[in-house]
């Protein structure tokens, strides 16, 4: 399912809003989540999961082809932890 298919499916279940309105809101959901993570704040969606940002320290890496050392700068990485309900729902049908 892509974002546009998600918009279609949600729009089918909503009476009050046009597909365009649903699209605007869905875009804003992911924009506001991105914004929040950029500020380093955690996101918790009940029954779905939580997102947080972890710091990775700078380290010396190596180019596996040439063996040359390279400095990898510190960076921040987004992480997702699946929520209990989603975890159970995904596992149940297997």
């Amino acid at each position: 399912m892509t974002k546009s298919e998600l918009v279609e499916r949600v729009a089918d279940k909503v009476d009050n809003l046009s597909k365009r309105d649903v699209e605007i809101i869905i875009d804003l959901i992911f924009d506001s989540m991105t914004d929040n993570l950029r500020r380093g704040e955690r996101i918790e969606i009940r029954g779905f999961g939580s997102f947080k940002v972890k710091e990775r320290e700078a380290r010396v890496g190596r180019n596996p082809k040439t063996g040359e050392s390279i400095n990898i700068p510190a960076k921040r990485m987004p992480f997702f932890k699946v929520g209990k309900e989603l975890k159970e729902r995904v596992d149940k049908k297997s």
Binding site: L6, F48, V90
Partner: peptide, 27 residues
């Protein structure tokens, strides 16, 4: 209206994953 779309968005993603369908949100 916003709350309804937000709830349905996460619920629809969950349904999709539950049915082994991957979800790709570009960006």
């Amino acid at each position: 209206d916003i709350a309804e779309v937000v709830d349905l968005t996460f619920e629809t993603i969950k349904e999709s994953l539950e049915n082994s369908e991957n979800v790709k949100i570009s960006g």
